[in-house]
């Protein structure tokens, strides 16, 4: 039961800007940029749409590598690129509106890059409860 055909094109990171520019020039709309971490590899999907035809460009990157920003081509991409930086710790270079990690301020830095993030301070609570009992 497929509603929409799923099109993915794996591209090299170096070719990203060229491919995105092609999309822009042929009249595509930027739907989203989304990141996911699978093993040690970050997978970044750039989704585009034109007249209900939905397409994706996919690049792969690893820890410490930089990804170029596409905000010169799609002005609105800053919101996704800052999000990727804040949640995954992937460095995106040359964003037009760079929040420098302050778009989404989280308790844990780059939470999606850390394994098994658990909430902080369950210990503290126990001691606090003990204290009240003592009193």
């Amino acid at each position: 039961m497929t509603i929409e055909e799923q099109k993915y094109t794996d591209i090299m990171k170096e070719d990203l800007l060229k491919n995105v520019k092609d999309k822009c020039e042929s009249g595509y709309r930027l739907v989203q940029i989304g990141c996911g971490k699978f093993g040690d590899i970050f997978e970044i999907n750039y989704s585009f749409e034109k007249e209900y035809s939905f397409e994706n460009l996919r690049i792969k990157t690893t820890e410490g590598e930089k990804v170029p920003s596409i905000s010169d081509i799609y002005w609105g991409s800053f919101i996704y690129e800052n999000e990727i930086h804040d949640l995954f710790g992937v460095e995106v270079t040359g964003i037009n509106l760079d929040f420098k990690g302050n778009l989404i301020r989280t308790t844990v830095k780059a939470p999606f890059n850390v394994k098994n993030v658990t909430k902080v301070k369950p210990e503290k609570k126990e001691t606090a409860e003990k204290k009240t009992e003592d009193n």
Partner: peptide, 8 residues
């Protein structure tokens, strides 16, 4: 409650 950014 189990989310990393929620303290309770």
């Amino acid at each position: 409650r189990e989310c990393y950014n929620v303290s309770g």
